[in-house]
């Protein structure tokens, strides 16, 4: 229960800015996956868990440069948050960096 309240607090800030676009992102993601344009999130997460074990605290689907990218935020066991960017079609890791 405690966890959930903490999450609510964190999320309040996070979601506040995104709420307008978010409502449709996941429906979009499903449509793209059904069309075969992007890989299922499960596959992306599986790969990410292999390379960067930790807890996935945020997932976003972005569209830049005419393609789709999955941007993950992973909390590792040292408490550091990693930002990982995968090509949503090929599953290739595009970028990783420690979030400030």
């Amino acid at each position: 229960m405690k966890k959930r309240t903490i999450f609510t607090l964190i999320a309040a800030g996070l979601i506040g800015s995104l709420s307008l676009t978010q409502a449709d992102t996941h429906d979009e993601a499903r449509k793209l996956r059904d069309q075969g344009d992007i890989l299922p999130l499960e596959t992306i997460l599986e790969n990410a868990a292999k390379d960067y074990p930790g807890k996935v605290i945020e997932v976003e689907l972005e569209s830049e440069y005419g393609g789709h990218q999955y941007e993950l935020e992973v909390l590792d066991k040292d408490g550091k948050v990693w930002e990982l960017k995968y090509d949503a079609r090929s599953g290739e890791l595009l970028k990783k960096e420690l979030e400030d």
Binding site: R4, F7, T8, I10, A11, A12, L14, I15, Q22, H26, L41, E42, L45, V56, I57, E58, V59
Partner: peptide
């Protein structure tokens, strides 16, 4: 909505 319903999986 509770943020837990927003986080994928």
């Amino acid at each position: 909505i509770d943020s837990i319903y927003h986080q994928a999986f």
